Amino acid sequence: MSARALDGKIALVTGASRGIGRGIAERLAQDGATVAIGYARDHEAATTVLDKIRADGGRAFLVHAPLGGHGDAARLWEAFDRAGREHAPDGRLDILVNNAGIGRSSALAELTEDEFDEVFAVNVRAPFFITQQALPRLRDGGRIINISSGVARIAMPEIIAYNATKGALDNFTLNLAAQLGPRGITANSVRPGIIDTDTNAPWLRGNPEAQARAAALSALGRVGEPADVADIVAFLATPDARWITGQTIDATGGSHL
């Protein structure tokens, strides 16, 4: 077998049991990385991803770690070390993909403080401290890729707190790039648009009118698939992307141009 772009690399993808996270995990494994599949609740779904990667000849292991509470980042890395003894015995890491998140919030008038705290805890505090605690593990020349959202540049007041979390994540990315550049570590954000995932399934799938409205938002005239985002992340993880850092990559298919 010829060498692949990520052979010998260790990657952690949070929220990898379904949707965009699953697509990213499977693509990184396809490119040769050993992938830690981070998940919070759905063990069955995470195991399905693990089995798929292994059936395709890849390497992966499960990291069960709910996110959003104080101390959850430390518990994630403890779970990583326990589960990854065989694959990453020194606990080192090459690629960190902060993908896990809550994809909803209420409009301003209905938003409660508890809902605000929850969405910021999972979407901002968790990746912040996961990354903080990853820095001693991350090898020089490594990659940090944060999954943001097109709503960081598109006004959607009905999910205002969610939008704000993604703006915060993009700013976090910018500062990481400046701080970690001397180590050759790149940090970039990827902003998906509407993607056909389980999260969007209740209003998107089986609804031709919703499909048509969503597709019309994109200059390319269709709804995105997880692979559309995963392929961008896979490129950013490779040596070919060594000169790209501190960037927000629009992955909306040209929505709201």
Rank of each mutant, 00 (worst) to 15 (best):
G181R: 14
A33F: 04
G84L: 03
A214D: 02
K166N: 10
R191E: 15
T248R: 08
G21P: 15
A214G: 02
T199A: 13
R85S: 05
T112E: 01
A121T: 12
N188Q: 07
E115L: 00
A241C: 04
L257R: 11
A88P: 00
D198C: 00
A25C: 09
I37K: 00
A121Y: 03
A126F: 03
L169S: 10
H43T: 12
D231P: 01
A230I: 13
I130P: 04
P127F: 08
G142S: 14
D140M: 05
I154V: 14
E113G: 02
L96E: 13
N98I: 07
A25F: 08
N123R: 03
T252V: 10
P89Q: 01
A241Q: 00
N99W: 15
R18Y: 01
I95Q: 04
G19L: 04
L217S: 09
D56S: 14
I160Y: 02
V151G: 09
T245A: 08
L50F: 09
W77E: 07
L204A: 02
G19S: 05
A65G: 08
G193T: 04
I24F: 15
A40D: 00
G184P: 07
L28R: 06
G8A: 14
L67A: 10
S106E: 05
H256G: 01
A152H: 13
L217N: 06
A3G: 15
R85M: 05
I194C: 01
A74C: 02
A210H: 01
R59Y: 09
L220Y: 13
P127G: 11
E115C: 02
V119A: 10
G253Y: 11
A40M: 02
D42M: 00
Q179W: 15
G224P: 09
A237I: 05
A107D: 10
P182W: 11
D56R: 15
E44V: 13
A121G: 12
G184I: 11
D140I: 03
A251N: 13
A187N: 13
P89I: 04
Y162L: 11
R82L: 09
P182Q: 05
R54Y: 04
R27P: 05
F128C: 10
A126K: 06
H256I: 07
A36R: 06
E225G: 02
R153P: 11
A168D: 13
K9Q: 12
A46R: 01
E78H: 06
S105C: 00
I102T: 15
A177M: 06
R4H: 15
